[in-house]
Write a protein that binds this DNA or RNA. Structure first.
Lengths: 186, 186
DNA sequence: CTTATTATAGTCAAATTTGAATAGGGTAGC
DNA sequence: GCTACCCTATTCAAATTTGACTATAATAAG
């Protein structure tokens, strides 16, 4: 559903062809907020056309490249857009962090291997934290606050994750992952 | 892949049938760390059998209930388990938060509706924060630290989200989501 | 006493996602 | 001057997920 939401949201601004939608999404760092696979994008576009939420405006032929089909949002599409946004705010579904599960089981395997990987991951996350903050700073002057909130949110998220990884690393280093009965060192 | 990882991890402890795996996952609050749908569970089990990572031990017939097939992990499965865990720690893939995208577009729609929904969501998240902390506290004495880290991680995550939602609410209330050029109030 | 919900155990069709393939042109490095 | 990778734009088969359905029994609610 969030793919449909994005397509409608961008077509609200101007008519585009699918590949163009992808480019704009990247420009606005939306590829860091959701999964962006071309197969899913084209699939969502087809669905929206079938449902009459968007419609083709024009097909641009080219000798050497595939044809481009430009789409426009319909009134029905505008209504769906509002509904999707509100639904998304309301839903409050859990955010799944793939590492949680892996870590819950990690004590069954060679701790020195886990330790090494965690160390690398901490370094990467440190870069991500810095990068996320930079992205926020660089966009202050040029994007609306709504987008800024998303960017700062990503920064805070990665910061929390970094702290978490460091705690994990400490416990793995001391081979304490299987210990029971003591609270974490926070 | 994380479904396979969990199945292998639990079969490492003892032989089980799929429905039992689901029950144990719920017991250990794993249904809050990953999507848990029976269809996917049975699908993953079938795949693992095909790949010889697990094998059926026994089928229990019952007059009134469906048959239960009990599975056991193979040596090949144990190797895969280690590989999957390490891979997951290494991968460092982005965590997608569905609200980020919705919020980035929310300024296009009626702000009073957004405001109302956000208010509700803040209340819910406050409950989740408390609940997550309780889950952590209640498990200190009874689960290994590896699991505890996951639980405390969930708590911190929800706390950060709450702060984020409150900032959003403030901006939506003051109808500032479309403003450009000023840093967020942090 | 009746109705509703929950637990047990699993299956299946339909919806969706993934990942690779296509194919010509540009460009960066060696 | 060659080779290898990136950009444009889309398609498609195969893998996976979803959500509804089956059917019985036990417990809860009213």
């Amino acid at each position: 559903m969030s793919m449909k939401m994005v397509i409608l949201g961008l077509l609200l601004e101007r008519d585009m062809h699918p590949y163009e939608i992808k480019l704009v999404m990247k420009e606005r760092t939306m590829d860091r907020m959701m999964k962006l696979q071309m197969g899913s994008l084209y699939y969502a576009v087809d669905k929206l056309v079938q449902e009459r939420h968007i419609e083709a405006v024009e097909v641009i032929h080219s000798s050497d490249r595939p044809d481009k089909t430009i789409y426009r949002i319909t009134d029905k599409g505008k209504a769906l857009f509002e509904q999707l946004i509100l639904q998304q705010i309301k839903k409050n579904d859990l955010v799944f962090h793939p590492l949680y599960t892996a870590l819950a089981f990690s004590r069954h395997i060679d701790q020195s291997k886990v330790e090494k990987l965690l160390e690398e991951r901490i370094r990467e996350t440190e870069h991500q934290v810095n990068f996320a903050y930079q992205v926020y700073e660089e966009h202050i002057a040029i994007v609306p606050r709504s987008a800024l909130h998303a960017m700062y949110g990503r920064y805070e998220h990665s910061l929390i994750e970094l702290k978490w990884l460091k705690r994990l690393f400490a416990d793995v280093s001391e081979r304490k992952m299987s210990d029971i009965g003591t609270p974490l060192d926070l």
